[in-house]
């Protein structure tokens, strides 16, 4: 028996919006610790990992580990039927071929019930080791979204150059070129507006904007986004250090005392010169 109740159902809506255009079919792995999902996009260029802790739910019961394979577009269609302030309850029986979604209106006078068919997916799980990255950039998520959107007018790839004084996002194409430079901000009263750079060495790498624009769909989940990267590593070193991680924390919307209840991490390999 599996049951998870989330008063802030809008969090699930935002998570689906952040992954449904990247991944078609995926499995939610449910354990007593929470729900997680790992999937590659259809062209296998990027990897997305979602995690929601059990203590982020208002009620969470998972008697034994379950894998819920589903079409995320179908799930998204159903989740869209919930109002933003609805409580969402996910229920699954043992060995069932479907899950039930309940949307409870705030005044508890209305309950909508939907079922979604499950799929048996032959998921390929990739091991994601804990890696220390040489460069970590924390910045407002809406600024990152804007930069990716603007630069995709210019070219297909963004070149991220990071030095101690700041970070530069640049793109070039047939019509010309463009760049945005962000300086590290001083400690401010509004941490959500800050730009923080932590680096061991300078870095310059290029990434496909098509994917970064997909990742930026997670912007409504978090005021800040973290980009973690490492410079090109010498031959023989594990290649995974070259992968960029774009991370959005998932927080509950408690204005007084917000807490992190999970994350979305997107992994993208750099574009390299042939």
């Amino acid at each position: 028996m599996f049951e998870a109740r989330l008063i802030q159902g809008s969090i699930l809506k935002k998570i689906l919006d952040a992954i449904k255009d990247l991944v078609t079919d995926a499995s939610w792995d449910c354990s007593p610790n929470g729900m997680s999902l790992q999937a590659m996009d259809t062209s296998h260029v990027s990897l997305v990992s979602v995690s929601l802790n059990s203590d982020g739910f208002d009620k969470y019961r998972c008697d034994r580990n379950l894998t819920l394979g589903m079409n995320l577009i179908s799930l998204s269609k159903i989740i869209k039927c919930a109002a933003n302030d609805d409580t969402i309850i996910i229920k699954a029986g043992d060995g069932g071929d479907k899950i039930t979604l309940l949307f409870e209106a705030q005044n508890e006078s209305e309950v909508a019930e939907y079922e979604i068919k499950l799929m048996n997916l032959d998921s390929e799980y990739l091991g994601i080791p804990d890696t220390t990255y040489n460069v970590t950039i924390k910045m407002p998520s809406n600024k990152f979204q804007r930069i990716c959107r603007d630069l995709s007018q210019i070219g297909d790839a963004v070149t991220i150059s990071c030095a101690k004084d700041g970070v530069r996002f640049g793109a070039a194409g047939d019509l010309g070129s463009g760049s945005i430079r962000l300086a590290q901000t001083a400690t401010s009263d509004k941490p959500e507006d800050s730009v923080t750079i932590s680096m061991q060495e300078a870095l310059c790498q290029s990434f496909a904007l098509k994917y970064l624009n997909h990742f930026a769909k997670a912007t409504p989940l978090s005021a800040q986004v973290t980009l973690s990267m490492s410079p090109d590593v010498p031959l023989g070193e594990p290649l995974l250090f070259n992968v960029c991680v774009v991370e959005y924390n998932i927080s509950d919307n408690d204005d007084e005392n917000p807490s992190t209840i999970g994350f979305i991490r997107y992994y993208l390999a750099p574009k390299i010169d042939d």
Binding site: E124, Y267, I272
Partner: peptide, 14 residues
């Protein structure tokens, strides 16, 4: 010309 490898080249299957 720039190219992009599959993410599977970077992470090992579990």
């Amino acid at each position: 010309k720039m190219s992009q490898k599959s993410i599977t080249s970077y992470f090992k299957p579990n």
